[in-house]
Nucleic acid binder design. Structure first.
Lengths: 181, 181
DNA sequence: TTTTTTGCAAACAGTTTGCAGCACA
DNA sequence: TGTGCTGCAAACTGTTTGCAAAAAA
């Protein structure tokens, strides 16, 4: 438990540090990033099998409202879940490959420049800034070119924006979740 | 029906121009921007009371997949819907006031610079870029200061990131929608 | 006339809520 | 020891799907 920034911040606000929250904060903090609620729930379950999905959602909501984590959707590349990452890192954009799903982070001055311009030109007090960029990574560009070559003869495809790879199955396991009656 | 860009693009791809699609395209195009599916559905219903919500979703999905509209979430400021706008405009960021919900657009070179850097530095072929910025507009900043003054004496509030205004009712009408059995 | 597209009902994913009991401070 | 938090079940919103009937081309 090396990290104390989030936990400290919570303690200051009089938020109780329950066992469940400890687990969740730990996971959020040590995971590189980009966990969605369901994944976080699965990981938490490994440490406490009785933890409830609702607790995960409630904790995430609290952290988000408190400005301690940011919510991303990563271009909805593999579903409509949201992803979360701590706010500790430097501002960055997320770059998502629409073919293989890889997510990279981009740090650079255009981001801070953008923020400053919005503050000065529009007079805003900026609290959150989120940039998500979708495209094809270098590797997938060549793969796409190859796939295209193999189609020679057929009518050229309309320039699809995404969705051109068959949607891969959601996650490792088919995610069987309690269904409604 | 002055605009033909989207409609033309669709015709080329062999998409049928049905009455419903005409209506929806028209609305998307002439509305300033930032319609969500439900709002679009309501507006469409004024012209064709028998149009179905599902048709709206299907049309939006088609336009999105075809790269003709962009999907936004505007920081989820008033719910988890998605908003849509045509791709005809120049690239821009959306700046959302987290207090009053106002949405402004920001055009500026940091955006194209950012795109270029991602292309050259990370080797991506960029297809979509989305920047959403949340904060307080000039007007709401002063209002917040006033609100804060009125609270003098009480313990200083934790620096809330959003959600500090009471969530306003979703839209004009309470949006009564067919509930599940 | 063939192929898309629609409308309907029902399903689905992701997330939130009400409430009684539990546990942190 | 009280107030905040959890777990459970069930609700809810936003969106998608299967299928027969309707309408473009």
């Amino acid at each position: 438990m090396a990290q104390g920034s989030i936990q400290g911040s919570l303690k200051e606000r009089g938020v109780r540090l329950t066992r469940q929250r400890q687990i969740l904060l730990d996971l959020i903090d040590k995971s590189g990033s980009h966990l969605d609620a369901e994944r976080l729930f699965q990981l938490a379950q490994e440490q406490d099998p009785k933890i409830n999905r609702v607790t995960v959602y409630r904790t995430l909501k609290m952290l988000k409202t408190g400005g301690l984590v940011d919510e991303l959707d990563l271009m909805h590349h593999e579903g409509d879940q949201h992803y979360y990452e701590t706010r500790l890192k430097q501002e960055h954009a997320h770059v998502i490959c629409l073919r293989c799903g890889k997510v990279e982070e981009f740090f650079g001055e255009p981001l801070s420049r953008l923020r400053k311009q919005v503050e000065t030109h529009l007079g805003y007090q900026v609290l959150i800034a989120r940039t998500e960029i979708g495209g094809y990574c270098a590797h997938c560009q060549t793969l796409r070119a190859r796939e295209f070559d193999e189609l020679r003869g057929r009518p050229p495809e309309p320039p699809k924006t995404s969705e051109e790879t068959e949607r891969k199955p959601r996650a490792a396991a088919p995610k069987p979740r309690a269904r409604r009656a």
